[in-house]
């Protein structure tokens, strides 16, 4: 399972690096969207027992959950992902708004054109 997740993360990362190297702001934004998905998938892979052998007294991963069997899945990575999804959603909303605004002001979304236009300001 971890291997499948690792392959997924690698593929998604490759795709988003390709997208982020594009010259269109929309492509770059899509690349950043995907990047956060890769991060979330990689956190999912962390819900197994920790690499370090359990420390005395404090082991988050063996927290007892009522009414469950002996080996419930560790819920904390899911909580982390949920938080992270909300944050990346908010940031994406902001980024898209910014792109729309830039498109209206500058009439182009190509990175090179944008950079050319704002060169010297006398």
């Amino acid at each position: 399972m971890t291997l499948i997740l690792a392959v997924c993360v690698a593929v998604i990362l490759a795709v988003c690096i390709y997208l982020m190297l594009g010259r269109e702001l929309k492509e770059v934004a899509m690349g950043v969207f995907l990047l956060s998905h890769a991060a979330h998938l990689s956190i999912i892979a962390m819900s197994r027992s920790p690499v370090l052998s359990g420390a005395e007294g404090h082991d988050l991963k063996s927290a007892p959950i009522l009414g469950m069997g002996s080996q419930p899945v560790d819920a904390l990575p899911q909580a982390l992902i949920l938080t992270s999804i909300v944050i990346s959603f908010a940031v994406m909303g902001f980024l898209l708004t910014l792109i729309v605004l830039t498109g209206r002001r500058a009439t182009t979304l190509n990175v090179d054109d944008l950079a050319k236009e704002q060169l010297p300001t006398p």
Partner: peptide, 11 residues
């Protein structure tokens, strides 16, 4: 985020 996840996985 990825690094924090890895820390959790390791420790």
């Amino acid at each position: 985020v990825i690094a924090a996840g890895l820390v959790y996985g390791l420790m």
